[in-house]
Design a protein around this nucleic acid. Structure first.
Lengths: 174, 174
DNA sequence: TATATATGAATGAACG
DNA sequence: CGTTCATTCATATATA
């Protein structure tokens, strides 16, 4: 997921995208949150090890406070991060994304195995049509997931727990 | 400019993803899907002719299964392909229309929410490391009022769809 | 070989 | 929560 030569700012103080900007017009309009490696590391530890999948509001606040030591971060960043993590972990189970979680133990694969086999069980056979229609008629008779309307609804997400509300307008809730 | 049928691998079935790392630092560099011409052709037919812009998960899986006949491909490849196709079609269209078109941007609403720490819109590290633990012991001794974090998140969890109805409208996170 | 373009992959943010 | 958008990085290929 994240090759080490990525762009995560390594430093702990200024997490600007300076390093990832070789020689171009380092645009400074940092709109998006650029998590540092420490951010990612800690968040993953929480998610994987501690099993914190859906932190509460208070937990998000606390995590954010802690992570601020490692660089600029806001509550919504932490909130979105966990939300995306959950969603993509689920997608990963469907093979739709490759959220390659680096194994915490550096077991294997780093130095390169003795022999890498890339053989697949298919492809290469191009003379025997295994599929009756290997043409372009994939969607010709494709059923469209009959049940869709009522089932989903995400079950029951009762909204929330915070009753602190309007006061946050002037003062900072956090 | 518009390379469409440029792919060298015309052999039909075998993409050359096997050999890579020609000369430079051998990373794990053959980790990128190189679509065959058939892949591209079929995908574009689906996108343009059949009008399949955003296939569902099941559709992606089916498309992938079909395309596997033409060469190695995974679900995530198809998934990313359609995603990139949509994004870049929109991007090109926006660049092409250089006339007086008002970019109807999405209403960037700004609502009161705990996500925003109003008041001091700055998050510099002015908070000195009061926390002696810079490590990842956030949840180590974290008292959680409603401790669910270490639980499981089994689905019936309150989501942060907080609707602090300050102004009488169900606000969003933002 | 060096630069430009096209495109696969990744992910923060946001919508419905 | 599931899905989509928007932006960015990385690299394969095209071009000069």
């Amino acid at each position: 997921m994240e090759p080490q030569n990525w762009h995560p700012t390594e430093d702990g103080g200024s997490n600007k995208a300076a390093e990832s900007c070789p020689n171009m017009h380092c645009k400074q309009s940092n709109i998006r949150w650029l998590p540092t490696t420490d951010h990612i590391r800690i968040l993953k530890e929480l998610y994987d090890d501690k099993g914190v999948k859906s932190p509460t509001v208070e937990q998000v606040q606390r995590i954010t406070l802690q992570l601020k030591w490692y660089g600029q971060i806001e509550n919504k960043n932490v909130f979105y991060w966990f939300q995306n993590q959950r969603a993509r972990e689920k997608l990963q189970k469907k093979k739709l994304t490759s959220d390659v979680q680096v194994p915490k133990q550096r077991s294997g694969l780093v130095g390169g195995s003795i022999m890498e086999q890339k053989g697949e069980d298919h492809q290469e056979i191009k003379t025997l049509p295994l599929f009756p229609m290997h043409g372009e008629d994939i969607f010709g008779n494709m059923k469209t997931t009959s049940d869709e309307g009522g089932g989903h609804g995400g079950g029951s997400y009762i909204s929330l727990e915070l009753s602190l509300s309007c006061e946050g307008k002037a003062g900072k809730i956090f």
